[in-house]
């Protein structure tokens, strides 16, 4: 007898849960549709800030950028999308200094992994969300990120910025960074030597 009652109550609970499921989908039927009708809604289209579409190098009003031509982005790029071409310029004090000549990024090879942006010590490059990058010609996919005649924004001199392990807190405390950075590079070389020993 108890098994029979179980059978009946099973049917009851099953029907109840099915009805609950149906009400859920019924409500879903009348919700606002999320489809974006792209070419038509171009004016009102909102793209998420996190969307990585095109690598750009922000320039300020004086046509100055923050890239020191350290080449970290080029080294970190997993498939060689970035090519940083540097040149030597002479400063006012007469010193020779490395500066950016061309920062070249190949749209067609980029996987949008964001490693270059994360590792850039001076936050010189970011991903914009301007996604309409289609062109008719493969050559047009190769972008030069720095504008013509642009130069490095004068801030503070960081000759050691080109170390393989930049510290995220570096800009705040330049003194400690100066001390630590060579140490870090030493550690790295030590490790490498150990490895070769083993």
């Amino acid at each position: 007898m108890s098994s029979f009652l179980k059978y009946i109550s099973g049917i009851y609970t099953a029907l109840k849960s099915l009805l609950i499921g149906l009400t859920v989908t019924w409500k879903e039927l009348w919700t606002k549709k999320v489809t974006m009708q792209y070419p038509e809604n171009r004016e009102t289209l909102v793209i998420s800030d996190r969307w990585r579409a095109e690598l750009i190098m922000p320039h300020d009003d004086n046509n100055e950028h923050a890239c020191t031509a350290c080449g970290i982005c080029m080294m970190n790029c997993p498939n060689g999308t970035i090519n940083v071409i540097s040149k030597m310029v002479e400063t006012e004090e007469g010193k020779q200094k490395k500066a950016l000549d061309k920062h070249i990024w190949d749209y067609g090879m980029c996987t949008y992994c964001n490693l270059c942006v994360i590792t850039c010590p001076s936050d010189a490059i970011i991903f914009s969300n301007d996604f309409e990058g289609a062109v008719y010609n493969r050559e047009k996919l190769v972008h030069q990120l720095n504008k013509e005649g642009s130069k490095l924004r004068e801030k503070k001199k960081e000759p050691v910025a080109a170390t393989p392990k930049p510290q995220p807190t570096a800009p705040k405390e330049p003194v400690t960074q100066k001390d630590e950075a060579p140490k870090a590079s030493n550690d790295a070389t030590d490790k490498a030597e150990n490895k070769t020993d083993l």
Partner: peptide
């Protein structure tokens, strides 16, 4: 089907 899945 699309309406049930909040599509068009």
């Amino acid at each position: 089907t699309a309406f049930f899945q909040a599509r068009l």
